[in-house]
Simulated scan of single mutants.
Amino acid sequence: MSEVPVAADSPARRPPSAVLVAPDKFKGSLSAAEVAAAVAAGIAEVRPEVPVRSLPVADGGDGTVEAVVSAGFRRLRTVVTGPAGEPVSASLAIRGDTAVVELAEASGLHRLPGPPLPLTATSSGTGELVAAAIRAGRRRVVLGVGGSACTDGGAGMLTALGARLLDAHGRDLPPGGAALLDLDRLDLSGLDPRLSEVEFELATDVDNPLLGERGAAAVYGPQKGASPEQVELLDRALHRWASFVGTEHVDAPGAGAAGGVGFAALSLLGAKTRPGIEVVLELLDFPAALRDARLVITGEGSLDTQTLHGKAPSGVARAAGDVPVIAVAGRCLLSPPELEAAGFRAAYALADVEPDPTRSMAEAARLLRRRAAQLARDHLQG
């Protein structure tokens, strides 16, 4: 957490209580830290005497490692297998006994070197990050599972941790969800025995089951490039995968997260599911940052109906309690009653001053600073 220096009006006057800026990223334009910096700069133009505390947040998806590193976790870099099988440089974060593993760092859509690979993308690199956390001696692993490129049911993650997936000829299956149709034997004898000593938390805002019309393939497969025919194939493959792993958790909320990585974590790693933003705010010690705050500013790229279902801004609004909360965003698709019901006093969108989305994204920092200055005029007088 960073704090903008305070310029008090006079030595005799006590500075006003702080503003806490706790945004998520504006996807495609600004990181959470850049959003916080732009908001702080806009406030400083109008009310330079008001201290601003910056606490970038995330909901378990991409940006989670960055958020906890900015709050004091140590970054650990390593090279792992990317979703297309190529090596990629990825990070996890460690502090004390805890490691934060962000699936998107290793197996995210942005890690693909080219077009989407819905049938063959693998979660292997995520398992390699988990293995790195265990080698580093951590006994609690927070697994953030947003933004994946794969629909392999977490099979790749498990192979990286020592499992073997074999076909009818005793050969190891190739990576990816489609290959699960040929699964004939699941050998877990080689799983790292230290896994039983680790407490896993699955940080996700996804409550989808593994299979069916609300499952990993049907809901998220198209976002990863899957055609309708490929969605049907992947769902059949995940059915076969579940028949070997066990069906106890197929309908559990979060089993469909990250193309079924949630299912593997719940079934074979003993993970417990928690809302991603709740876990991240706990790791960031949000209550300490909130202390003496007069106003909280949060936000994300698009305030819409998804925001209301566990995304970072709504989680921040809940955690803020009685402290007023204002949202900033690239665009706001929520009505005033919806904003109020979610705990937001107001929302300031870049689209209100620049309706062209291409220009708005390209000039997001400047526009956000401008909107933050207006926010300060409206809510930080007196």
Score class of each variant (00 low, 15 high):
A347V: 12
A18Q: 02
P11F: 12
P313T: 04
T120D: 00
L269P: 07
A44N: 13
E197D: 15
E229Y: 04
D152G: 07
G270W: 01
V328R: 01
R171W: 10
I326C: 11
G96Y: 02
T307A: 00
P228C: 07
V65I: 06
D378I: 13
S335W: 00
V57Q: 01
G42A: 14
V35K: 08
T358D: 13
L266T: 12
D304Q: 05
S70C: 06
A132R: 15
A136N: 11
A347M: 02
V279H: 04
P222R: 05
K27D: 05
E300C: 04
F73K: 11
L161H: 05
P313I: 05
A84L: 09
V101T: 12
N208M: 09
R240F: 11
R240M: 14
I297F: 02
A149Y: 02
G343Y: 02
D356L: 03
A168Q: 14
A376C: 10
S123A: 08
P287E: 05
A155T: 12
V101H: 12
A131V: 12
R366K: 10
D378A: 08
S89G: 14
L367D: 06
A93I: 08
E45L: 12
R95D: 08
G125D: 09
D378C: 04
D184S: 15
G156F: 01
P287R: 00
V145H: 02
F26H: 09
L334R: 00
R194D: 12
T120N: 00
G276T: 13
P324T: 00
G190A: 10
G382K: 10
D251V: 02
T307P: 00
R236S: 13
P23L: 04
G170H: 12
D322E: 14
G262L: 01
A317Q: 07
P357Y: 01
A7C: 10
A179I: 09
A37C: 06
V141Q: 03
A93H: 11
R164N: 07
L308C: 01
E363A: 14
G154F: 02
G61P: 00
V279T: 09
G270N: 14
A12T: 15
E45V: 10
I134T: 07
D292F: 11
V6S: 14
V21A: 08
A373Q: 05
R53G: 03
A41T: 05
V353G: 02
K27E: 09
L375T: 10
F344E: 02
A33S: 07
G221H: 12
A149C: 13
Q374K: 13
P355K: 12
V19R: 08
L109S: 12
L375R: 07
